[in-house]
Structures are given as C-alpha cells and as structure tokens.
Design a protein around this nucleic acid. Sequence first.
DNA 1: GCGTGATCATTT
DNA 2: AAATGATCACGC
Length: 224
Amino acid sequence: MKINIPANEDDLLARAQALAGLNLAEIAEQAGVVVPKNLTREKGWIGLLLEQVLGASAGSKPEPDFPHLGIELKSLPISMQGKPLETTFVCVAPLTGLVGASWKTSHIRNKMARVLWVPVISERHIPIGERIVGTPFIWSPSPEEEQLLALDWQELTDMIVLGEVENISGKHGQVLQLRPKAANSQAKTQAFNKHGQPFRTLPRGFYLKTSFTQMLLRNHLRID
DNA sequence: GCGTGATCATTT
DNA sequence: AAATGATCACGC
C-alpha cells in the first residue's frame, strides 16, 4: 500500500493543505489506522500518520521524508492560540568525526533545507482523535534564520569537539539545543573526553526551541 | 545501538 | 507555566 507518492512540491503542499481543518480521527480512518487513547506509548504516532497519508517514504532512513523532492516532514504540536507546545526534534547529533566539520556540510543543515510543517492543535486535554490539523506550509531558512542555526550549531559542535559534551545542557543555544535522544538514560554511545580519550555517554539530538518554531508560524501564517 | 517518529514527566 | 532531561515504539 504505497500509492500516493506526491509528484512534486505543489502536489505535496496541496495534499497537506487538504488536511487542514480535519481532525486526526478522520485522517486515521482515511489511512486505515486506529487512534490511540494517548501518546504515552506512541509518541511518534501523529508524525507517522501524517507521513502515511501524505505518501512519505516509510522507514528510518537518514534521508528526507520525500527524497525525490528534498523535503522533510515535521508535525508541530501547537496550542489553540498557535503556540508550539514542544521543542522539535531534528536529528541525532554526531559526537565523533567532527574535526573539520562545517555547518554547510552538516546533516542538520541538509535536513532543515526545506521542511513541510504541519501544525496540529494538540493540547493534552484534547482527545487524540479530536485534535485538528492547522495550515501546513513549506519553509526554507531565511539567511537570518540560517545564521541563528549556524551559530548555535557551531557553539554546540565546538563543545563536543573539545570533549565537553557532558557539560552541554538544554540551556545552551538560542534557537537550537542539544538534549538526550535515547531509549532511556542508561543508553550509551561513544564520544571523546577533553583529553581526547574515548568514553561512553548518553546519545544526544538537536532540537529546535519553541521560540524558533513560533517565529516560523508567525512569519508564514501571520498568527499572534 | 542507531536513526526514524516525537511527547512525557519531572524540575525550575 | 515553561524548560530540561527522560522515555516509548519500530526496523534493522
């Protein structure tokens, strides 16, 4: 069941915009999937549902959701006032092989190059099936936005290269953070300490802060 | 364990 | 209330 692959960007956007105003129960029925009672054990359910109904290539491959279009799909939980309710996970953060790495060739820059944002009014008191899809839009970073991302990426990457990954907290970065991204706090991956010696530490991921995604919403949807 | 999809839940 | 750290599911 892998029909419905969008032919081009306009097709994809039109298809996403056709979901605006629908609730997740209606979309789930369309996709033939059951709506969970809560997301505690299915945290990625909404994102996977949207991938399915929009014809994204399934799987956990480290490439855009729509490889032929170079577009990444991101669902964005928002309040009824249009404010992001969560940070946005972008990708895992490499902790090794970073000597000589540059923003321009980074995995995260490639992922953020073109994104289809699909806001979903997702306040926790609203039953999953009754949550409504907002107005989707396709975005690429403006020069200013890319500069903000690049600055944070450089700061965080510098700390990692200097062996200070364990001194990085969610407080670092203006628009981009480095936070745990793992099955649990016992998970381990290799990194290097400040003496250049390898050691095992918690895997991390890059996340966009809500202030940044809120700015995107305002710029593209004129929401206050 | 890694990378995909994220939100949960505790701390500030 | 917002932000940070912890966690859940799935296919390799």
